[in-house]
Design a protein around this nucleic acid. Structure first.
Lengths: 334, 334
DNA sequence: ATGAAAGCGCTAACAG
DNA sequence: CTGTTAGCGCTTTCAT
């Protein structure tokens, strides 16, 4: 073709606003530059940040994101998994509704790489990014104990969810190590929602022989616990000590000291996407599991100094971070 | 084909886990049961809820959602619009980064229906769902005035963003009606971020002749304002009165009275999807604009009663809602 | 009724 | 190196 002709064709194409049809390209190349992200609920701030992190990473590599809310419903989750498999997406990042029942099989059969985040999939093992939940809960519990608490209750998400199970383990380890008794009725395991956190906290704190401190297993539960504490008119930390997982931007507004184990959410999203990319370019390598460390954050630590004799480690007044935990990334190769 | 053969084929197909290839179907049918959602940031709770609402509506009709964070960047937005057009999605719901410069043209040329939410697109007019911003800001301002405030500052998102512009109009109307002076230096128009809210509030409240009340133009700004107020050690409402748009679930935890104009976010998402569906089945009808009413919410209203002589309308103690504004849905047909 | 064939718009393989 | 062709896996149309 003459260069002039070529130029004219391109010119006309531009004038007509021609754009290659992405669907046809996807069909031909058998891959779709789209990745699926299955989470339980975008409205949960933890997942919101995760979505954001994954979206950023994906966008940098020209991938787009299909968002799927499973609502903790195994059925919705199954439908979405099937849909993503049918749609031949390039890969899927998901947070299983259950450790034991979620199956990524339809995706695996279609040769689509899968990475689990925040929770494991035991039925169909895949590359996984997790918080070091045991250690996070352990640290929080140790902190409450160091503050003098001996009667500690815990409220966490249950139902075969990795994070809940592991966080309970960390709590029990810390209690055991300190020789403190653990009361079964002070372990509330349930939905992981604000409502569950509220009800559980009301239940625990209304008893005559009540726990003097509560450990909250995730952000929504923390919100519920805080509302319960307010509802009951209890003062923190004088009447009840609080610690929990997940930082939230409004926490400093509460005029009460809280110890929070913040999750490196953005990094979790990035790592998940990295694992996915690695799996896309080489599907053969052994399954990997990445554990990320939490970051302890004292919220309103100043208020605390006067009310407790607990000797805190050095706190950087700017960062309000403490015990800079060495990022013990255990990139296990199973 | 013999029924027996047919049955055997289906049987084998099932055993092999056969599933129709979605991409091939999309290519053939020229539409993809996927809709694009372009927002500035999933991490903004308002958009998070919007995403959730749209996802729910879409999922009910077997549509999936491609999430696109524009980050308020016109360039990212342009790229996403182009991508969605290339990908021949079934429709797009978007919140333009700017009233005057965002162009949905690539989508319109590809015959893809578009609906704008929260903000208008003047360059390429499309069906739009908006809050009645003028009235919301007007009501909030009137309330502050009724509380006795005469010196009111306002902080809102600027840069040709519909919501910011209209909210300013409502504020000015209320001030004007009451014959109160408006000081230009008390109108802060900027990024719509927490940082902007914080800085602006610090600036306004640090002056010797400072406003006695602030109106905050969105959720992130409110967060920044609250942190500024805490930072300066001011008491609400004694030293500064606060009102703002967007409700957030943690607001009741603050022990201070706030008046909030809550947006019917879920409904906004639903309506947007409805408009999109209507446009998909009939692309010819005239452009429609839906205006939804806010809901006034007194946060911690009890605390307020003792501190002000303002006679409040009846407050339902359960709902903490007041002045049940008649949903003045102006489904204008332009 | 059922079955064959065309074609969606691309890209990759192949022929000139 | 340029230009033609086959075919991705469906759905729709057309012929039997």
């Amino acid at each position: 073709m003459r260069p002039a002709t070529r130029e004219r064709i391109l010119q006309v194409a531009r004038e007509l606003g021609y754009r290659p049809n992405g669907i046809a390209r996807n069909l031909r190349t058998q891959r779709s530059k789209i990745i699926g992200l299955i989470i339980s609920d975008v409205e949960n701030p933890f997942y919101t940040s995760l979505v954001r992190a994954v979206e950023d990473s994906a966008h940098a590599q020209q991938f787009s994101l299909v968002l799927c809310n499973s609502d903790e419903s195994p059925e919705k989750e199954r439908n979405y998994i099937q849909f993503l498999a049918d749609e031949r997406v390039a890969g899927v990042i998901g947070s299983p509704t259950s450790e034991t029942t979620t199956s990524f099989l339809p995706l695996q059969r279609a040769g689509i790489p899968v990475v689990a985040v925040d929770r494991r999939s035991l039925l169909t093992p895949v590359d996984t990014v997790l918080l070091d939940n045991v250690r996070a809960a352990y640290d929080l519990t140790r902190y409450l104990i160091a503050q003098g608490h001996q009667r500690i209750g815990i409220i966490l998400p249950g139902d075969n969810i990795t994070s809940g199970r592991e966080r309970l383990t960390g709590f029990l380890q810390a209690m055991h190590e300190s020789g403190l008794p653990v009361r079964d009725e002070w372990i509330c395991s349930g939905k992981g929602s604000e409502a569950f956190g509220f009800q559980s906290a009301i239940g625990l704190l209304s008893q005559i022989e009540r726990p003097t401190a509560l450990l909250s297993g995730n952000n929504l539960i923390t919100l519920g616990v805080l509302k319960a504490v307010q509802h009951l008119g209890l003062r923190v930390p004088q009447q009840v000590g609080l610690a929990g997982l997940d930082e939230m931007p409004w926490m400093t507004l509460l005029r009460m000291p809280l110890l929070i184990a913040a999750q490196p959410v953005r990094e979790m999203g990035q790592r998940a996407f990295e694992l996915l990319c690695a799996r896309m370019s080489d599907s053969a390598h052994p399954i990997r599991e990445v554990r990320l460390a939490h970051r302890l954050v004292y919220v309103n630590a100043e208020d605390m100094a006067s009310t407790t004799s607990f000797t805190r480690p050095h706190v950087d007044p700017e960062q309000k971070e403490v015990m800079p935990i060495q990022e013990h990334r255990t990139t296990l190769t199973l």
